[in-house]
Design a protein around this nucleic acid. Structure first.
Lengths: 222, 222
DNA sequence: TATTTTTTGTGAAGTATTTCACATAAGCAA
DNA sequence: TTGCTTATGTGAAATACTTCACAAAAAATA
């Protein structure tokens, strides 16, 4: 596939499709463990509470991975999706902020399982700096930019208080990092060439609350 | 507003609109602290990287809260949104699973701030049961159904291993709980009258990874 | 091998969501 | 009070996303 074809395709692919690829990947991992060789779009859809057409359409943006009459080869499709999502490799991740959420994320197995390896921890608390946290020595945030560059960090997870998040993000960007996952409940300003995604853990609780007070009939899980 | 009018309106309101209301609420809280009296849809949109039309359309599903030529009254709009989202009250929440993620969530201030009060903790680990965790004594998960009912828990946050999540959810539902926020990376089966939302913390990392390998030009934060 | 069944891949149709654009209303200034 | 400016609220238009429906291809069956 040439680059121009690649960008052509990407223009058509929505955020929702990418998120569903994550779901398919998870289902395929499970199917693999259950020793399934193939899976139909119908069965995969059922497991993720989607329609089979949706599954086929999502996959069709990236190629033809199935066999008519048979379905998709579980192991192969899993690998293809890993390639599309870019999780068929190791990403070097730094985690900034070893508080409540940060500590939990540092030990979160799911990240490692998907190739996101946290190789660096930062904090500004003198009691934490230098201490060993799950095999990683916590660095002083004062050396942030320098250490990020030295270690070739490509992705930063931010778990710091909302009040300081923007200052830290500015440093992270100055160090050349192009991808940031932000857990602070604040809208960060980043340049156009930096990828920023926000994880807002209250949002889904608020959706539940909305559903309850408005007597909303649930349709399906996110 | 009558019940039938209410359901009429809700039919038209999308999940995205509700999620954006959460964002507006957060912005308004900040604007309140900054002593803004009013805010235009244009300025609110700018802060959330949306369009002003989007903001006005979202709000218009629920009423006319603004003044032409002036904008929206910050404090009043914040209260209105709180009412719509159902966060103008206290929700009694139980947290199940005091592991990595669970511990972090138990201390997560943002939940409390929005009216989600974790009043009950459950685990199956004998070392944790009976111990005091942020002022709450950890209960044995064996007494789950009984204690959920006794305490009138309306909402459950699930932070248990994927392998046992379904069994626990079945118990939670048997106890009459109608709303569940699930952090386990698994698709849970629940009856139609139960609200289930999933928090998948790897999903956004995968989106970043996708964006990086596909040379995706970032548009805006989620 | 021929026939039936299954299931993909995909244009077209159908929905849903977002943006446009403007009439309307309120503030503000003189 | 009049005219100018600002900004809402909302149908209509434009986009985006999902589902339909079916031809095509491969597997299963006999």
């Amino acid at each position: 596939m040439t680059f121009s074809e690649n960008t052509e395709i990407l223009k058509k692919v929505s955020e929702s499709t990418i998120h569903r690829l994550s779901l398919y990947y998870r289902s395929l991992s499970l199917l693999e463990k259950e020793n399934f060789e193939t899976i139909s779009s119908k069965e995969l859809a059922k497991r993720e509470r989607l329609t089979s057409a949706q599954v086929r359409k999502d996959l069709s943006f990236f190629g033809s991975f199935g066999t008519r009459g048979l379905g998709y080869p579980v192991n192969e499709l899993k690998k293809k999706i890993a390639g599309i999502l870019g999780i068929d490799r190791i990403w070097k991740v730094a985690l900034i902020g070893i508080g409540n959420i940060g500590s939990a994320l540092a030990s979160y197995k799911e990240f490692t399982r998907q190739g996101f390896h946290i190789v660096k921890l930062f904090d500004n608390d003198q009691r934490k700096i230098g201490s060993n946290h799950k095999g990683i020595v916590v660095s002083d945030i004062k050396n942030l930019a320098q250490e990020l560059e030295e270690d070739g960090i490509e992705l930063v997870v931010l778990a710091v208080p909302a009040t300081v998040a923007q200052y830290i993000v500015d440093d992270v960007i100055a160090a050349g990092v192009k991808s940031i996952l932000n857990f602070a409940p604040v809208n960060l300003k980043v340049p156009d060439d930096v990828h920023l995604r926000n994880e807002n853990m209250s949002m889904e609780l608020e959706y539940l609350s909305f559903a309850m007070v408005n007597n909303h009939i649930p349709k399906r899980a996110k």
